[in-house]
Design a protein around this nucleic acid. Sequence first.
DNA 1: CTTAGTTACTTCAATATTTGAAGTAACTAA
DNA 2: TTAGTTACTTCAAATATTGAAGTAACTAAG
Lengths: 167, 167
Amino acid sequence: MRVSQIGRMKCPVARTLSIVGDPWTLLIIRELFLRSRRFEEFQGYTGMAPYLLTARLKQLAKDGVLERRAYQQRPRRYEYRLTDKGLDLYPLVVAMAQWGDRWMVDAAGPPLKLVHKHCGLHSAPGLSCPECGEAVGPRDMRTEMQPVMLADRARMWKRFKHQTRAA
Amino acid sequence: MRVSQIGRMKCPVARTLSIVGDPWTLLIIRELFLRSRRFEEFQGYTGMAPYLLTARLKQLAKDGVLERRAYQQRPRRYEYRLTDKGLDLYPLVVAMAQWGDRWMVDAAGPPLKLVHKHCGLHSAPGLSCPECGEAVGPRDMRTEMQPVMLADRARMWKRFKHQTRAA
DNA sequence: CTTAGTTACTTCAATATTTGAAGTAACTAA
DNA sequence: TTAGTTACTTCAAATATTGAAGTAACTAAG
C-alpha cells in the first residue's frame, strides 16, 4: 500500500494522517499557529526546500486546511491563513507540544508557554471528558470499533493474508 | 534542511515530530492503542511494507516509545507494547481521531467510539484548562515563546537569509 | 537608467526513501 | 513429507526529497 492511499481507510486517524501526516506539513501548521503567514516565513523557520513548501501549501489549500490569498497586487503576493478546519487542528498541535515538553526535555526549560487568557494561568491544557469534566488518559477510555471500521479492517486483513498466501 | 534534522530545533512540536511525524509511524501507534501487538497485525492492518515496518519498529523502540519483547521461545517471536512514553501519546491520537470524525466524515457515521469508563458516556474528550476546567481552543490561549526558542528561530532565519543572499 | 533588493516561487540533477514482489529462517501440525 | 505460521530480509524499480541555482515581477536607491 502507498502512503497516498492511507486516506481510503475508514479509520478517522488514518484519514487525518492522509492530510497532516507528514513532518513538513505539520511544521507548516505549527508556524501558522505561531502566526506565520508568508512563504518566506515558512521557509525560513522550517528550513524546508521551497519546492516542497509550494507542494505542501498547494495540497493544504486543496484540503481546506488553509487559504491562500493575495495580500498585495503589483507585484502579486500571497499569504496563507488557517481556515476553521485548520484552526481545529489546535488540539493536535498542543498535544505534540506537550509531549515534546514532557519527553524531549531541554535543560533550558520549556521553549513555549501557553497562557489561558481567561484565568490567566500558565497551563498545559489536557484531555478531559466533556460530560463529567474529569481528566482522561488511555486507561480511562474504552475504544469501541463500529461495524464500518471492523469491516474495513477485516477487508485489509483478508487482502494481506491472501497476498502472502499467493507467494 | 533534512527531515532527519527537524529534531534539532528547540521547538517541542518539532521534536515530537522527529519521533512520530511520519504517517506509517503514527499508524503503528494507532494500532498499538487498538491493542495490536504483533508484527503481522501491524502489517495487515496498516498495509505497510515489511521492510518499513521493521525499520519503524526498531526506531520507535530506540526512541523509547515501545518495547520489543519475546512472547515465546522456539521459535523466538516478538511482540511490541507501548511504554509510558508511548501511552502518553494518547491525546495526540485522540486529537487525530476527533479531527477525522469532524472533518473527514463518512456517511456511515463515526467508525470509532470512545466511552469514558467512569461516567459511562460516549464522548469525545476535548482540551480544557486544568486550572479552571474550561474548554479551550486556539482563541483562548496565548502562546509565549521563551528566549531559548526565540533565539533558535532567529538563528534559523539568519541562516536562511544568508543562504539566499549568497546566491 | 542601472543596480541591488524583495518575495514567491520553479527547475534540475544528485541522493535518499519507498514500494511490491520474492525469499529466508525456524519452527509446528497433519 | 508437505503445508502452514510468524517475523522478518533482500532487491531492483519507482518515487520523493535535497541543495543549489534560476526566474518573474516588481520597488527603491544612487
